[in-house]
Simulated scan of single mutants.
Amino acid sequence: MIDEALAASDPLLSNFLITRCHHLLSEALRAAIGPETGANFHSWAVWGSRKAGVTIRQEDRDQAARDATFVAGCVGGVVGLIVGGLTGQWTGLSLFVSLLVWITLGALTGGFCGYQLARYTRRAASRRILDGNRLVLDDIGRATACYLQYVRDSEANSDEANFASVLETIDEMSRKSRTENLLGRAFTQYESARVGADLDNRVEATYFGNCLAILHEHIRLQPLISQSLPFLIRKCVTERLMTFSVGEETLSVHEDVPPLDEAIFPPALRELTNPELLEFLTPPDGWDTGRSNLEQTRASDWTVLKERMGYIVNLFRTRQLESDVVAAPYDSQQFASIASGQYPARPW
């Protein structure tokens, strides 16, 4: 299943297959750990992969071109204003005429360059996002498959059931990717959630596993994310294009994570007890920029790892037990089409 998704030469079909894989892995991992513990990494990866498909299909290209044309045109106009003022002083030409000519030239030139830059970068971003889409499945998807095989062996009382051996295999993956054993720590938390007795602790362990896995992923994706968003338009793209859907909910990363109700977090995650998780989250070195109240969780530049993680850890915490997160991204007929190597019927 994973090999098929990664081997697909058609970028669009590959993305659909990858999204389907994440959904199937999410369902299998939930069944292994316990559905009552909520969403796992692959539950969230479904929606990340679905959003990646928008860029891979370049459905956001027109909006990016409009935004870049406007921003670059404004910058060009400001440059023209400065040049026009200096030209009027130095040449003795009418200041009004000089400003009119240079502002117009600056705005038109800047807008044209911005338009061309946006179209080029969206094409480049499409390739890099697909690379990232495949990397995540090839990396964490295979680790999950390894863990699920261990769970099956364990439940069958097989001599092959050896979590230490599984952990060693997963740890080797982290060493190769230089992510400081984050993936092994993530699956250690999933195993704690699977075998634990206290439900609140199991939910907390699953949430922590999700945070560790997503940090592993985003460290690996950092070069691709940075390359897909040119420096000049990063903040503009973050504000105008970085939206995604989780089930029926649409979220914008340039806004603070919205609470689902007055309680902000589900009961099992209101008061965290795991010392390792608290250290992972607590500022200034931890990743929770919202400091448990969702303030300052917005991202102004999606290429900055600290900003991405500050948003993500709070998004995960608020919605750990939400049914939308674990919902299927496509209906049964769409899944059947994807499984047979065809595009699903719209809407996507």
Score class of each variant (00 low, 15 high):
V101K: 09
G114E: 09
R128E: 00
E160W: 10
V79E: 07
N133K: 05
W90P: 04
D153F: 15
V83Q: 11
N157G: 14
G132F: 01
G77M: 00
Y150L: 12
L135K: 08
A118Y: 01
G80I: 02
V78T: 06
A125M: 04
D138M: 08
E155I: 11
G110L: 07
R128P: 00
V136W: 05
V79Q: 07
V79C: 12
L99D: 03
W102R: 08
R123M: 05
E160V: 07
A156W: 11
D131S: 02
S158W: 11
R142P: 05
T169A: 10
Y115P: 04
D159F: 09
R122N: 09
D131Y: 01
S94V: 02
L167D: 08
G132W: 00
T121I: 09
A118E: 02
L117P: 06
E168L: 10
G132S: 03
F112M: 14
V97Y: 06
A118V: 02
Q149T: 15
T169P: 07
D131A: 01
G141F: 03
T87Q: 15
G110Q: 08
L95K: 07
R119M: 06
R128N: 03
D138R: 14
C146E: 14
V79T: 10
L100Q: 04
D138S: 13
L93D: 14
